[in-house]
C-alpha cells in the first residue's frame, strides 16, 4: 500500500464541466470537499469549455474530439499528469478525445492546429472514483473515515459512460463493474446484488424524450427496490438527475411511491469523512436524503476508524 504521505502530495487537474456548475452543483461541492479532506489537490482547468456531451459526438466526431482536446491542452498546462472529471459523461468524452488522438494523431493534430488547440496528447483522464479506488486506495481511505454507513442498503448504479465505450481502456469491468460496490463496502454500506447496474437511464433524452426516460428509470427503480435497496449511489449527473428528479413521475405512472435518495458517491464518502452535510450539498437532492443517512449513523460513532 502507498503511504498516506504520498497521497497528500497528489495534485490533479480538475475538470468540473457545465452540469457541475448548474444542476449538479452538489456533485462539484462534494467532490472538492472530499478531495480536500483526503489531501488531493485539485487544480481547476483554467478557462475550460463544455466537453460536448451529450450532443457533439451525435453529429460530428471531430467536433467531439476538438472540444475535449482543448480542455486536455489547458489541463496539461497546469503541470499535472492527469485530469479528473467527476461527471461520467465528461469523463467519457475527455477519454474519447485522448483515445482518438492517440489513434489518428496526424489528421486530428492538423485539425486541432487549425482550430487553435494546443494539445499533444499523453494526459491521463480519470474519474475521481478511479482516483479513489486505484490511486488513493480503499485501505488508505478506510483509515480516514470517522463514521460508517452501517449497513445502508445501496444500489450501486454505474450507468453507461463510466464503463463504456469498451474499446477504450477502462478501470473497471464493463459488464460487471465492482468499483462503486467496493467503495460502498469500505464505507460500511451493504451494496445490494441487483441487475440493472449498467443499464441506461436514458441520459441525454431527459429533455427531449422524458417519456422514454420515465419508462427506463421505472424499470431501474423497480429492480433496485426488489433487490432491497434503500437508496442509489451514482457517478453521473445525468443518471442522478433522471433517477432523482423524475422518480415521482415514474412512480405515479406505475402507481407507486419509491422514495429512494440518489446520492453521488462523493457525498457518501464526504459524509463518512465527517464533513458537514451542507458542504456536500445533500440538501440539494430532490428526494429527501439527509434523514436516511442520519438514521443510519445515529448513536454509532467512529467505529471504523478505531477498528481495522
Amino acid at each position: 500500500m502507498d503511504s498516506p504521505e504520498r497521497h497528500t502530495q497528489m495534485r490533479v487537474a480538475y475538470y468540473p464541466g457545465c452540469s457541475l456548475e448548474g444542476t449538479a452543483i452538489e456533485f462539484d461541492q462534494s467532490c472538492r470537499a472530499m478531495c480536500e479532506a483526503l489531501g488531493i489537490e485539485l487544480v481547476e482547468v483554467p478557462d475550460w469549455n463544455c466537453c460536448g456531451a451529450s450532443s457533439a459526438h451525435f453529429v460530428n466526431h471531430d467536433l467531439a474530439v476538438a472540444l475535449g482536446a482543448r480542455n486536455l491542452g489547458l489541463a496539461q498546462r497546469t503541470g499535472a499528469d492527469q485530469v479528473t472529471a467527476p461527471c461520467a459523461a465528461c469523463y467519457a468524452r475527455l477519454k474519447f478525445s485522448e483515445y482518438k488522438l492517440h489513434e489518428d494523431p496526424e489528421r486530428l493534430g492538423q485539425m486541432l492546429e487549425r482550430g487553435g488547440v494546443d494539445y499533444k496528447g499523453g494526459l491521463r483522464v480519470s474519474s475521481p472514483l478511479e482516483l479513489l479506488v486505484r490511486d488513493y486506495g480503499l485501505e488508505a481511505l478506510k483509515e480516514k473515515l470517522v463514521q460508517s454507513l452501517n449497513g445502508l442498503k445501496v444500489a450501486c448504479y454505474y450507468g453507461c459512460l463510466l464503463v463504456r465505450p469498451t474499446e477504450m481502456p477502462s478501470f473497471d469491468d464493463p459488464e460487471n463493474p465492482r468499483s462503486l460496490d467496493s467503495l460502498m463496502e469500505t464505507l460500511g454500506a451493504e451494496p445490494v446484488d441487483w441487475a440493472y447496474r449498467v443499464e441506461c437511464c436514458g441520459g441525454g433524452l431527459a429533455l427531449g424524450r422524458a417519456d422514454i426516460v420515465r419508462k427506463l428509470i421505472g424499470d431501474i427503480l423497480d429492480n433496485a427496490v426488489e433487490a432491497g435497496a434503500e437508496c442509489f449511489v451514482v457517478a453521473c449527473p445525468l443518471c442522478q438527475g433522471n433517477l432523482d428528479w423524475r422518480q415521482t413521475e415514474a412512480g405515479s405512472q406505475r402507481g407507486k411511491q419509491y422514495n429512494l435518495p440518489v446520492y453521488y458517491y462523493t457525498q457518501l464518502v464526504g459524509w463518512c469523512l465527517g464533513l458537514p452535510p451542507q458542504r456536500l450539498g445533500i440538501e440539494k437532492l430532490l428526494t429527501p436524503a439527509t434523514t436516511l443517512l442520519e438514521r443510519k449513523v445515529s448513536g454509532l460513532v467512529s467505529q471504523v476508524s478505531e477498528g481495522v
Binding site: D47, R70, L112, G115
Partner: peptide, 21 residues
C-alpha cells in the same frame, strides 16, 4: 469561456476538417 471567438475557430476547424480528411 473567456474568449468566445476561440470556440468559433474550433468549430470551424472541426466541421471543415473532417471533410478534408
Amino acid at each position: 469561456v473567456k474568449r468566445t471567438e476561440d470556440m468559433a475557430r474550433l468549430f470551424e476547424a472541426a466541421l471543415s476538417g473532417e471533410k478534408d480528411g
